[in-house]
């Protein structure tokens, strides 16, 4: 619960930096909180960082697509602040820091992990977006057949 609030705060302020509308800020914050909670829970049970990030990103995708339909706003308004807690910024920083300290094997480890995490986020969000578009298309087709 404490972590939910912290991630909420992070995404909320991320929303301010990315300049989204005031009425959407709270929803973007909740998106970040949910994604971090999903990530933290999965990480606790499985211990796989890439898999947990993927689950977190799927939650972001589902939430933002749903809210986009309810609030009539494009989905990225929620998804970009929502992935803010998940993005591998610290990983990118550590990679370079290891290179500066000339411990290259650590740098490669961290770099590959960063790339994998970023890929997991992108795939997670794209996965849900595609699912939603698929659903919309099936709905249209059913509507046409009637």
């Amino acid at each position: 619960m404490k972590e939910f609030l912290l991630a909420f705060l992070g995404s909320f302020c991320g929303g301010i930096i990315f300049n989204i509308q005031r009425k959407n800020l709270i929803w973007a914050g909740i998106c970040g909180g949910l994604s971090w909670t999903a990530y933290a829970l999965t990480y606790e049970y499985t211990g796989g960082i890439v898999f947990s990030t993927f689950i977190g990103a799927v939650v972001v995708g589902l939430y933002s697509e749903t809210m986009a339909r309810i609030l009539k706003t494009p989905a990225f308004v929620f998804s970009i602040p929502g992935i803010f807690p998940l993005v591998p910024g610290a990983g990118a920083y550590f990679t370079v820091l290891y290179i500066v300290n000339s411990s290259y094997s650590d740098a490669v480890n961290k770099g590959v992990e960063t790339a994998a995490v970023a890929g997991a986020i992108a795939f997670g969000i794209l996965f849900t977006t595609t699912l939603f578009q698929f659903g919309v298309r099936i709905k249209e087709r059913i509507g046409r057949n009637d």
Partner: peptide
């Protein structure tokens, strides 16, 4: 404190563009 500087969102967007 460098969380506002690091390019996490650009990395993710880059991969999204590739997809």
């Amino acid at each position: 404190s460098i969380m506002i500087l690091v390019p996490g969102v650009s990395i993710t967007n880059g991969i999204k563009d590739a997809l």
